[in-house]
Design a protein around this nucleic acid. Structure first.
Length: 268
DNA sequence: ATGGTAGAACATCTA
């Protein structure tokens, strides 16, 4: 059987419902993980999701900022809403879903952006980001005969040279500084996670999932970064059937600055 | 080196 999962930072789920519905209608992922929902749980637009065939909904939101939600066409069970760095921010949600013979544990993350100044001594937001990534070392790619793990989300770090439009020009820009990219890759490997978007993609190929709102013409300047990620436990790699970065969604009406990434698996 | 946009919520914070 086929299983697909999408991740998308939508920068306000309520404002973005029209294009979220477009994604679900055109691509029909089994599971959609959203970040920056910017809505408290009691105001989450559950009805709109139910109406378009996504009645299974889990959220971890708060007023105004951050917030993650995972919606699905088939049942999901909430496992955890983990708190990081002893701060009440809503930045994590894990659920399980059945896919073929396997139970998949799906982590949905929204890692702190980290502010502008890449010095943890001066900028508490950057300190928070580094601490958050360090704490993510505890999130392991649990797997067994009939279980596997997936970790998706806006991780706000572009780890490789060609995950940004200019490696040299972004070395001192938050999201691509060596202290971030090195601890990020170390954390990923320590957890046993496979970076599926780079699996079978040459390291010199540019990959972006985010284009700033501040560009006059995002498409012409194309100064993108790969901030959104899809990771899995190693035992899912043989079932991995490819993925798509929906670049066109950056040009949809009232877009998010991030685009969806959809990964597919063929599971027995 | 600077400033540019977007959203929540209604002054600023966050990104």
């Amino acid at each position: 059987m086929s299983f697909s999962i999408a991740t998308w930072n939508i920068n306000s789920v309520r404002l973005r419902m029209p294009i979220v519905e477009r994604l679900l209608d055109e691509y029909a992922p089994d599971v959609l993980c959203l970040q920056e929902t910017k809505v408290p749980d009691e105001l989450f637009p559950e009805k709109a999701f139910r109406k378009v065939g996504y009645p299974y909904i889990a959220f971890h939101g708060q007023k105004g900022y951050h917030g993650v939600a995972t919606v699905a066409r088939r049942p999901i069970e909430v496992v955890e809403k983990r708190r990081f760095c002893d701060i009440e921010d809503s930045r994590h949600l894990s659920v399980t879903v059945q896919a073929g013979v396997k139970t998949i544990l799906v982590h949905n993350f929204y890692v702190p952006a980290g502010g502008d100044e890449p010095d943890p001594e001066i900028n508490r937001k950057f300190r928070h980001k580094l601490d958050f990534v360090a704490e993510m070392n505890a999130i392991r790619a649990e797997h067994g005969e009939v279980s596997a793990s997936v970790l998706v989300g806006d991780l706000n770090i572009a780890p490789l040279e060609h995950d940004v439009w200019s490696h040299k020009q972004l070395l001192n820009v938050v999201s691509h500084t060596p202290v971030e990219t090195e601890s990020f890759e170390a954390m990923r490997r320590a957890g046993g996670w496979v970076d599926l978007m780079r699996h079978n993609v040459p390291s010199e190929q540019k990959l972006y999932t985010w284009w700033s709102y501040r560009a006059q013409d995002w498409e012409a300047s194309n100064r993108g970064r790969r901030l959104d990620h899809v990771w899995s436990s190693a035992n899912l790699v043989p079932s991995f059937a490819g993925y798509e970065i929906l670049r066109a969604a950056r040009g949809w009406d009232r877009p998010s600055d991030h685009v969806p990434v959809i990964a597919r698996f063929d599971l027995g």
